[in-house]
Design a protein around this nucleic acid. Structure first.
Lengths: 122, 122
DNA sequence: CTTAGTGCACTATATACATAATACACTAAT
DNA sequence: ATTAGTGTATTATGTATATAGTGCACTAAG
């Protein structure tokens, strides 16, 4: 994973894990890698990895049991609402970016369709 | 302007100025505020303001003349291509966010409509 | 020449981030 | 009891960011 120097690593990895959770790639109740293993997997420091799990627990996405590890929550409703809010965030950020560039939502759809068409033609 | 604690202030203000340039709010050749004034306008430190203008000059968006100030480039083509790349960046970031959540642009529109409907029912 | 506005350079401080290294405590399995 | 795997805590170092304050040099205008 290549990191954006403009955002803390722990934020970026936490977002990646949340993505894997809401897509079902990391199912409810499944065990996450140990802190040291997560650090190895992402090429980061174990301290940073620990911070990531602390953040996921703070958000109610994971539960941590000392000596056992960190697990994805089994609360399906929580995961569903997390996915919804992540989609909403992406959408709002996109529209805010375009608004700052003086582009309306309607114009944004034109750009979006143009982009999808060019992808279809690949 | 409220700043995102996850990104450097100088990046955020530089982006805001670039937005104003590509929308014509800051026309080609126009004079930008002095470093100290920019700092006052955004509630930031003059050193940070200076760094912002250094970045804009590095990107070829502005030119700085010692003792006179910083001015928007008069190269219309440069401004046009900047706008295009900013739109493309916003679009690609949006689609990358959605891809990470396992959904296509088309599905995102469904979510958006669902969102709008639930807002209508409030 | 003097002045105001400006860019630029420098030192200093505080905070967050990320790293490194070490140690301790808990749990499950042997 | 021992072991491996785990979370947790601590101290330390280096870098980037942002702040604060000061001073100097250049430019245009009076």
């Amino acid at each position: 994973m290549d990191f954006d120097p403009m955002k803390p690593i722990w934020v970026q990895v936490a977002n990646r894990l949340k993505q894997q959770i809401v897509t079902g790639d990391l199912p409810p109740g499944s065990k996450l890698p140990g802190g040291r293993d997560l650090a190895l997997a992402y090429g980061i420091n174990p301290n940073t990895a620990a911070r990531i799990y602390q953040e996921l627990e703070r958000e109610g996405v994971c539960t941590t049991r000392r000596g056992m590890g960190t697990y994805v929550t089994e609360d399906d409703e929580r995961i569903r609402s997390l996915k919804e809010s992540m989609i909403r965030d992406a959408l709002e950020r996109f529209l805010a970016d375009l608004a700052g560039l003086g582009i309306s939502g309607k114009e944004a759809l034109i750009w979006l369709k143009k982009e999808e068409e060019s992808n279809d033609h690949q």
